[in-house]
Nucleic acid binder design. Structure first.
Length: 788
DNA sequence: GCGGGATAGTTTTTT
DNA sequence: ACTATCCCGC
């Protein structure tokens, strides 16, 4: 990021912790910090130096927000105002937490190890809850449920209430409860009007039942890790006071992503000392759909009167054109606090815009462009393709595979969410505790042991009526003859195994126990028998799982790590192109960024528009802004005129966001592919082989169009497709009527994909056509042919 | 209890 | 078009 990333005072801070606590060390340190501060720009410096009282830092993309946070922590410690364990520092992701810890360590040395309250909201919430578990009806060794456990539990609750699970799916209940938890609402606090939105008025009741079940199972879901903290503090002011006392300084990263529960959590903690510093960017708020409240930022000054607000507007990441494109775009949003990013970098390359016929061509163009960069020795790790929805990834992946360009997909299922990991985990949980019903249920018939629904149902009934856990129910039932001989024997064997493994766990290191459990249970064998490509990957994951256990002192701490932190790090450090969604890209940066799929309906996403109206559109626009600002030197936007959505071909129209880019910062490129078709025309064999293919016909249609229509969005005079002139004043897909409308309503026309039709409406170069076969569509004028 | 055909649902995602 | 999940017949 900044040029001064290597700390000039890291030597001074690389002191052993004990020595650092001496006054002279502090004095020396603070002198060094002064030196360090001079390398910050004026605003950054103000954000770091204003230690006392509430501070809100509005940090635009690439303005050095992490740098401010870490320097601020160093500054608090160096100035002697608080010791590392008296600083609360929260992030959203484990990755951000890890990075912050590393960077703080880079500034102050090993003392950073003392920052035990640096972590995600959830990790810190867990830590607090374990200390006071009994006050919220849990034991300190409570389990943290994953989504699958949650869903299974939710199903049981729905069934217990005799509600038809078909009509009222558990998924839906889960998301409703989740949103209540995001808003900090306990079952009793759910507004009466909302309590009934599920299953004819049973919503709140089911929520309550679910919470009760969690307590019986000694379990918490992710929402509880925050919500139960709130309850703990509200019901036990003395406990709250303890933490208010302890956390002398509070720092919050990505504040725009906090939901109401997190906001309340922070507010309770910050109430007394008010030394809270929140860093965020309203223009990068892209998680509204999962409960993030941009309002938290907007109401900061109201909640903390007299707060210092610092705006970081100097961008150290991107070149001029990219920044002006991003700024111009985001300026269209109404609800924002308003910042203007500026850079002292050169203008650099313009943002490019390329139209493709369809998504396949789009993928091909991106692939070709990546190859060009690769040939120029551009590091692949500095290239990213950012898509709106993961469904877009497949075609791009296919293309990269064909070209042999190494790539990595970021995001996707987390390591600990994969079935094999959850299964292995369930085995260990059962070994660890005979009370873990959810875990037992998960693996009781994995691998198949002939213990199907009927048997499980009997166990459930028995367990419920006698009030014992499932495993205990099983133990008792195998002594009766209620079960048929086969399942009875299976169950007996399984229980015997679990007691054997539990005994083993008392003396053996946990990784060996795990290895034994997975083998003796037949779990590993199950995957070995399945000779598919992904079975091999799963076995590999299991190995990694067992291996990673060795680093933990005991089973308990390992289980915690897995449920909260564990993640896969495949192909990290290798030179690969990154492929991910725009959401996953936040916080990252690349020299070159490809942005495919800028089409109405896809981006901005129709569903976001339908569900959230203007707010939805603005969030989509922020997403576009995030995408553009990931680029350091090159941003390349693409759109396709035809895209398959849910299997059906749709004609699409370029995104309105394209219209919102400043013309001077954008260069409209021809799709070079059209010219490669043209060049095949010159050598006969290639030509004849491609004659009659859709691609060739497309090229023909395009060329015809181009020669008789001067309003074509493609530039007229480029011959190579590279370095095409900018079309000043004619950004494509204008929605005003300034161009000559070359089609009249009622006119017959022909479209390569949809066939013949009648023009039903004209809006600039977007034409609405009633196709004889395909129905009404809006298409770009340049893909229509006039019918004689 | 298991495997194969019907069926529904497909934005974004962390913890 | 693709997939994950469900349901039924064996």
């Amino acid at each position: 990021m900044n040029k001064n990333d290597s700390s000039p005072f890291s030597d001074d801070f690389g002191l052993p912790a004990a020595k650092h606590n001496s006054l002279s060390a502090r004095a020396r340190a603070s002198v060094s910090v002064q030196g360090y501060l001079t390398d910050l720009n004026e605003e950054q410096r103000r954000a770091v130096e204003t230690l006392d009282g509430p501070v809100l830092v509005l940090a635009g993309a690439g303005t050095g927000k992490t740098r401010v946070l870490t320097t601020r922590i160093a500054h608090v410690i160096a100035s002697g105002k608080a010791r590392p364990f008296e600083i609360l520092s929260v992030t959203f992701t484990n990755k951000a937490a890890r990075e912050m810890k590393e960077r703080v360590a880079g500034l102050i040395g090993p003392v950073a190890e003392g920052m035990q309250w640096l972590g995600t909201f959830h990790a810190i919430g867990t830590k607090i809850l374990r200390r006071h578990a009994e006050l919220v009806g849990l034991r300190s060794d409570f389990t943290i449920l994953g989504v699958d456990d949650q869903l299974r539990l939710m199903k049981q609750v729905i069934e217990a209430e005799r509600i038809d699970e078909k009509r009222w799916p558990a998924r839906q209940l889960a998301s409703i409860i989740d949103s209540w938890k995001n808003r900090g609402l306990t079952p009793a606090q759910v507004p009466p009007g909302e309590a009934g939105i599920f299953a004819q008025g049973k919503g709140a009741k089911l929520y309550e039942a679910y919470q009760e079940r969690l307590k019986t199972l000694n379990a918490a879901d992710f929402g509880d890790l925050l919500l139960e903290c709130l309850r703990l503090w509200r019901e036990n002011p003395d406990v709250l006071a303890q933490y208010q006392e302890r956390f002398r300084y509070i720092l919050v990263d990505e504040y725009q992503d906090t939901n109401v529960a997190q906001y309340l959590w922070l507010r309770l903690l910050a109430q007394t000392r008010k030394n809270i510093c929140c860093v965020g960017d309203d223009d990068q708020s892209i998680y509204g759909w999962r409960g993030a409240e941009v309002d938290n930022i907007l109401r900061f000054e109201h909640d903390f009167p007299g707060a210092t607000v610092v705006r970081l507007e100097r961008n150290y990441r991107s070149t001029g054109y990219i920044l002006s494109a991003a700024s111009h775009l985001i300026a269209q949003n109404q609800s924002r606090l308003g910042k203007t990013l500026r850079t002292e970098e050169e203008d650099g390359e313009k943002v490019t815009l390329t139209g493709a016929w369809d998504s396949e061509e789009e993928a091909r163009l991106i692939g070709e462009e990546i190859e060009v960069l690769q040939n120029r020795k551009h590091a692949l790790s500095e290239i990213a393709v950012l898509v709106r929805v993961s469904a877009q990834m497949r075609e791009i992946e296919d293309r990269l595979v064909t070209l042999g360009v190494p790539y990595r997909v970021i995001g996707g299922p987390r390591f600990y969410e994969r079935a094999e990991i959850r299964d292995a985990l369930a085995y260990l949980r059962c070994t660890n505790s005979f009370y873990d019903d959810l875990a037992f249920e998960r693996i009781v018939n994995v691998p198949k042991r002939g213990l199907g629904d009927a048997t499980i149902q009997m166990l459930h009934n028995y367990a419920r009526s006698t009030g014992v856990p499932l495993m205990e129910a099983a133990r008792q039932m195998i002594e009766t003859d209620e079960l048929r001989p086969k399942p009875r024997q299976s169950l007996r064997d399984l229980l015997t195994s679990f007691s054997r493994w539990a005994k083993m766990a008392e003396t053996m290191p946990q990784s060996e126990v795990a290895q034994t459990v997975l083998e003796e249970s037949g779990y590993t064998e199950m995957w070995q028998k399945e000779r598919t490509a992904d079975a091999a990957g799963r076995l590999e994951n299991l190995k990694e799982f067992v291996r990673s256990m060795e680093e933990f002192p005991d089973m308990q701490s390992f289980l915690e790590h897995v449920s909260l932190v564990m993640e896969a790090n495949e192909g990290e450090g290798e030179d690969r192109v990154s492929l991910m969604t725009l959401h996953a890209a936040k916080g990252l940066e690349f020299d070159t960024v490809f942005l495919p799929g800028w089409e109405e309906g896809l981006f901005p996403n129709q569903r976001a528009l339908d569900e959230s109206g203007r707010a939805g559109l603005e969030e989509e626009r922020r997403l576009a802004h995030v995408g553009l600002t990931r680029a350091k030197r090159r941003a390349k936007i693409y759109f396709a005129s035809n895209r398959r959505i849910h299997g059906l071909w749709n004609s699409t129209v370029p995104s309105r966001f394209i219209d919102e880019l400043p013309e001077g910062s954008v260069e409209v490129l021809d799709a070079p592919a059209h010219y490669s078709h043209q060049s095949r025309f010159d050598n006969a064999p290639a030509f004849s082989s491609s004659y009659g293919t859709p691609g060739w016909q497309r090229a023909q249609a395009y060329n015809n169009k181009k020669s008789d229509n001067h309003q074509s969005y493609r530039s007229q005079n480029s011959s190579t497709g590279r370095g095409a002139p900018i079309i000043e004043g004619k950004v494509i897909a204008r929605s005003d009527n300034s161009g000559d409308a070359s089609f009249a309503i009622g006119e017959r026309t022909f479209h390569m994909k949809f066939g013949p039709g009648t023009v039903a409406g004209v809006d600039g170069n977007k034409i609405t056509v009633d196709f004889d076969k395909a129905g009404r569509k809006m298409v770009l004028e340049s893909f229509l042919q006039k019918n004689a």
